[in-house]
Nucleic acid binder design. Structure first.
Length: 496
RNA sequence: GCGCCCUUAGCUCAAUUGGUUAGAGCAACUGACUCUUAAUCAGUAGGUUCUCGGUUCGAUUCCGAGAGGGCGCACCA
């Protein structure tokens, strides 16, 4: 695609010049609107032919000229309304100038409501103002009737262009707008839910001198004045837990985490994470909180017109299955007492590749994914993970080979990850040092020892339950969206 | 990173086995039309067929390389 003016764009420039020559400012400062489109339509009672004066504003999305009259449709955030222009109502000058208007122009009109012969509520335009001349045609689609069925042809089907030019995608696709309205409702519902349970919303650093709280490769940047490296956070966890030390018993943060990994249909380098921490609660208590939060979020999305139909019917309490017994049932032997060789054989049988290069924890994880995770359809809590898979969780009371951890799965995907959080600074130091050794050995997904965090723990960190929920993933689950790029307004793309 | 597929007018898509001047709808432009709504009718214009190279008398079509994208796999505890 070229940035040179093509003939369509040149025609619009010429109209712009003609408007200016006629004394019409093509880019206005504002407009006083009395009604949104759907409100204006609703204000004319059924059966009534004529109504009062309204002022509406929006984008011209259809234009049908008829010599000395013209019909148009105007779209705003609420919907669309028809406009009716008459030469003998507007005067020759104004009516003739309508030829300089195009589909895509943002205009404001005033006039009285009327009902057309076919019953459509319409504004009989008495005055019209150009608010923003459109110099580039929007790729509106077309509808046609094929064998009695209405087929919508998008005018903008190339996914790449839709992601790159989300503004145009939104402008021509009402269903895309509806989806992102639903996303906003989801976020709002989570805030309302947590605020209602006395959680405090906080903001913690995105630029961090040490990254931690997850295992991922970070984005690295540099602060010039301090002449030091900084990392974009891969998780909020360690800062939120510092705040619990400070006396904020219930905190949460909704924000972006950044992970320098591959891009695919479920991964974007920056994504929206919810983390919340509740002092004195253990992981079992957090399961009931998560259940209620997910149901509340699902209800919020379900209420959005045009999106809600895809939301699964959720019936709490969600099933809880234990990690070890469920995997044992899948493979047919006891994985905890099995030798590495037995695990490798089972992994090979399950279709796992390169089993000889995998560590024991990785083998267990692969087996669990193949035999249990992928088969989970309806929301299900998996609880009590082996300690070697969960270095950040507290040991399980009465069984130190396990941890007090749960993950929530649905449709084979992880929706939430939670622990009874480690609050023993001596244990924490040992785990940090083990991570630091791995990092020094070349694993750049591992961070070093966070001395400041240890200092915070040494002051006394209350026991707490902590939960992380990837909100893009949750939204994708609730709306049955297959690609994360359809759930993020401006997904990460290569430069054009 | 690997495999498969895609890239033609502003947009959505055609183009027979490699063969005349690369077509259609919408959008655009000119004209007609005072209740239309996929408005209608008559006409006009619009192309580096992603880029570079090769094969051929001849390439949108076949081959090679590159760019961008989509899907799947792998990676992402």
């Amino acid at each position: 695609m070229t940035d040179e003016l093509n003939f369509v764009q040149q025609a619009r420039r010429d109209k712009l010049d003609a408007l200016v020559a006629a004394g019409v400012a093509p880019f206005a400062y504002g407009f006083v609107r009395t009604h949104e489109a759907t409100d204006a339509i609703a204000s004319l009672p059924e059966g009534q032919e004529e109504g009062g004066a309204v002022s509406v504003a929006g984008r011209i999305v259809a234009w049908r000229g008829h010599g000395k009259t013209a019909f148009a449709h105007l779209a705003d955030g609420s919907g669309r309304i028809q406009l009716y222009f008459r030469k003998d109502g507007l005067g020759d000058d104004v009516f003739d100038r309508l030829g300089l208007y195009d589909i895509g122009d943002v205009i404001g009109v005033s006039g009285s409501l009327m009902r057309t012969r076919t019953g459509e509520v319409t504004v009989r335009v008495a005055s019209v103002e150009m608010l923003a001349k459109s110099l580039r045609p929007l790729p509106y689609g077309k509808e046609e009737i094929v064998d009695g069925v209405t087929v919508r042809h998008s005018g903008f089907a190339d996914p790449e262009q839709r992601y790159r030019q989300r503004y145009a995608d939104l402008a021509v696709h009402p269903e895309v707008r509806a989806l992102f309205i639903a996303r906003s409702r989801l976020i709002t519902s989570i805030r309302t839910f947590l605020d209602g349970r006395n959680f405090l919303e906080v903001e913690t650093p995105i630029l961090q001198p040490l990254y931690g709280g997850a295992a991922a490769r970070p984005f690295t940047t540099h602060h010039n004045a301090l002449d030091m490296p900084l990392y974009l956070r891969i998780a909020d966890e360690l800062y939120l837990k510092r705040l619990v030390v400070g006396g904020f018993d219930r905190v949460y943060e909704i924000g972006h985490d950044f992970r320098n990994e591959g891009i695919d249909r479920t991964h974007n380098p920056e994504f929206t994470m919810l983390e919340f921490y509740q002092a004195l609660a253990d992981y079992r208590e957090m399961m009931t909180v998560v259940e209620a939060l997910i149901v509340s979020a699902a209800n919020a999305v379900r209420a959005v017109a045009g999106v809600g139909a895809s939301v699964p019917d959720l019936q709490p309490p969600f099933p809880r299955i234990e990690w070890v017994p469920s995997l044992n049932a899948g493979v047919g032997f006891d994985v905890m007492s099995a030798s590495d060789a037995e695990l490798r054989a089972a992994a090979t049988k399950a279709g796992v590749e390169k089993v000889n290069s995998l560590s024991r924890p990785k083998l267990l994880d692969e087996l669990f994914q193949a035999h249990v995770e992928r088969k989970i359809e309806t929301p299900t809590f998996v609880i009590d993970y082996p300690v070697e898979l969960s270095p950040l969780a507290k040991p399980k009371r009465g069984n130190p080979a396990l941890t007090e951890r749960f993950e929530l799965f649905a449709r084979g995907r992880e929706l939430a990850n939670a622990f009874s959080e480690l609050n023993d600074p001596i244990d924490q130091r040992q785990r940090f040092e083990a991570q630091a050794r791995l990092r020094d050995a070349g694993d750049d997904e591992m961070s070093g020892v966070d001395e400041d965090y240890l200092r915070a723990m040494e002051y006394g960190m209350p026991p707490m339950g902590g939960v992380g929920i990837g909100l893009d993933r949750l939204f994708m689950y609730l709306t049955d969206t297959q690609n994360i790029r359809d759930a993020i307004l401006f997904p990460t793309m290569r430069p054009e």
